[in-house]
Design a protein around this nucleic acid. Sequence first.
RNA 1: GCGGGCGUCGCCAAGUGGUUAAGGCAGCGGCUUGUGGCGCCGCUAUUCGGGGGUUCGAAUCCCCUCGCUCGCCCCA
Length: 428
Amino acid sequence: MKQLQSLRGMVDVLPGETERWQAVESISREHLSRAGFKEIRTPLLEVTDLFSRSIGEATDVVSKEMYSFIDRGDRSCTLRPEGTAAVVRAVLEHGLLNKGFQRLWYCGPMFRYERPQTGRQRQFHQLGVECFGMNSPTSDAEVISIAWDLLSCLRIEGLVLEINSLGASLDRKKYRDELVDWLKVHFEKLDLDSKQRLDTNPLRILDSKSKQTQDLLQEAPQLKDFLCEESTQRFLALQEILKHLKIPFKVNPCLVRGLDYYSHTAFEITSHHLGSQATVCGGGRYDGLVGELGGSPTSGFGWAIGLERLLMLLGDSIHRNWIPDVYVVNRGIKAEISALVLARKLRAFDLRVQLDSSGASFSKQFKRADRSSATWALVLGDDEVTNGEVRLKRLHSNKMSSTVKEHIFSSSDLEGLMSFLLDEKVTR
RNA sequence: GCGGGCGUCGCCAAGUGGUUAAGGCAGCGGCUUGUGGCGCCGCUAUUCGGGGGUUCGAAUCCCCUCGCUCGCCCCA
């Protein structure tokens, strides 16, 4: 029979890795809650329409990357390709915006049907925040700083923050038309990809990787010249505030972002240690989205961090193996049961206890005890059961010592044993 | 969807047409049936992702297929 395997682009996280995930998750949770963010959990599955309406029909995400299917009730459903749309939906559905502000975070899997490569999977995980009802450049800066600080406190180095303003949606529309007209005149000088994008998504031509296209764009109309006064002012203000916060940034006039709902501030945090998928965190302002999805006009700002990419940058520094305090060596039917009873009691005292239930020889069990790196071996065999005692032996990882001290405790004196272990644990 | 690279034991790997497919790690058993780390001994792939073909003979050559991987597009 052929060996079954996971679907392409769907990745298992194995023991050893899960510890790193847990560390990142708990640090993030703490970091966000200190800043007043509350967690929201939305379903993985939504009505397809939600995404096509919010992300944009013509975007790559919607036009070719969604996992969609028709369910038994004849509804078109889609596995969420990103988090924002669903959060907005939930927030509207439950009237969370009636209170005015909301600062929310979420974490979980997203799905996009793409060819997997470094830093890209079909099921991947995002940690994101969404803020509603705040509209000042200061709030943009604060939310950006929260992402920046989270990445810094995880000690990720070599990050670059890039920002741009996409202007109000009207500005962008005007610019888009102007750019398309101009590019049509120079159509022959464009690279093949850009030629195709001219119809579908012309703004994306701006960050084309083709050298000749980039050279050509030097002469093209610039988005910043189309920003209305208000937009220009708020972008300048944002830059001032970031400088004041001592967060280094680069203005990247070509930073466009692929989702339709962005307006005004857009930003990305990238790292050159990631291969060609360099973006760890991306986000921006989406003042039109809530209205678009049927709510009363409410400004929004958010970002998402790709957790797989984050983990790639993290190294092994936060990786901590589970090491037992006590490894319980036992042999014989009565001893086995006593050992189990004892293990439960020790665990209740917050000790990490590994119980050997192999029934193997003492020699074998000690080998495993040693390899587990446990501090103590607790020995329980027929002799001990008969004498009503347990033996405790310190394990040495470096040197063989012929004078290993064994401590013997009466099995009726479990409190003595536990306080001994706990004392030792504290002083270690 | 389009390119490039790669697929030999749980993991790392040697092997590029010729007798039984190296080696290391891990695992298991033993030396040591109640005491670990070191050491020594033994065991663990009828088979080289799968299917065809060429050949007296294929892990090695050819074709197809599947998978992985890196890149393009795009994004976290």
